[in-house]
Nucleic acid binder design. Structure first.
Lengths: 161, 161
DNA sequence: TATTGTTATACTCTATAACTATA
DNA sequence: TATAGTTATAGAGTATAACAATA
């Protein structure tokens, strides 16, 4: 039982949003997701990077290395648009393109030490912004939201052509 | 808190997404919201309209009439970009601009009968798409997600300048 | 034939600056 | 001065078509 949830708090009146739009989960997802992305992008301007770059670095931090096709799928960026993203990161020495062993068509994109350090600073900044944005939710509620969105992610990706 | 990993199912192996990105609620929100918006936009192509137009019509359906400034805030579109949106809707006879009683600076944008009928068809189509996208969630889970996002909406809008 | 990476292109979305007419 | 609407414009995001090298 989290504090103060009497079923319908309704919050305040000023940030009023019509019930017809609030009733649409699709609208809520797009809207909240859009605002989240906007804040995220705003934070990354300090590094002159965009969300796609951050996503690539995060994936590489965990996987060590990945092909551009994999990066595109995992980060949610089209392979055509990923080229310039990797170009920029490579130009700054944050990642390197290496030949993929066993398949000369592929690159093996890998995080450099400099990239790992820079990513650490970016994570700290973005985590702070995220925490502020989610401050209206309790830890339990954040966990619940996380669980629901995690299950939704594979489902919404299914339609990707 | 990266310590809570044991209580999550995460059995969806094929559409694998790195834990480092899944752990970020901001990333999940942006990503799922983006996919939701993409599907929504795809559905609206049958009407040659975009999500912003749908949002305006939905707001007007509930409020009857609103100024462009109000529409911009409620739908989540910048006032500058809303001009062309209302222009298109007005050009198709779905809404009308009327003088605002008491303030000659404002317009009172109102839904026409044709707009109301067209919106009904759009809602049916978008609801169907939304239902398919959310099919992995139970009714209770959808309600929970809806509640969490509804509380998050006013919070994320707070940073709007 | 299918896949990986790539370029060029176009269209949408969003943000910055500045103007007008009213308040 | 402040606000509602507007215009022009530039940047970022995304989508379409086509291609070379390799599997």
């Amino acid at each position: 039982m989290p504090s103060g949830d009497a079923d319908l708090p309704m919050d305040e009146a000023p940030p009023f949003v019509p019930a017809s739009l609030r009733a649409s989960l699709g609208f809520l997802l797009s809207r909240v997701g859009g605002e989240s992305r906007r804040r995220f992008a705003q934070t990354l301007t300090a590094w002159d990077l965009r969300p796609a770059h951050y996503g690539v670095l995060m994936v590489l931090l965990e996987l060590g290395a990945a092909s551009q096709r994999e990066l595109a799928t995992l980060v949610g960026v089209d392979p055509r648009n990923l080229v310039a993203v990797v170009d920029l990161l490579e130009g700054r020495g944050l990642v390197v393109r290496e030949p993929h062993p066993g398949d000369r068509r592929r690159y093996s994109v890998r995080l450099t030490d400099a990239g790992r350090e820079e990513l650490g600073r970016m994570r700290a900044a973005s985590d702070a912004v995220e925490g502020e944005m989610l401050s209206v939710l309790s830890d339990a509620e954040r966990a619940a939201l996380h669980g629901l969105l995690s299950r939704l992610l594979p489902a919404v990706r299914h339609a990707a052509k």
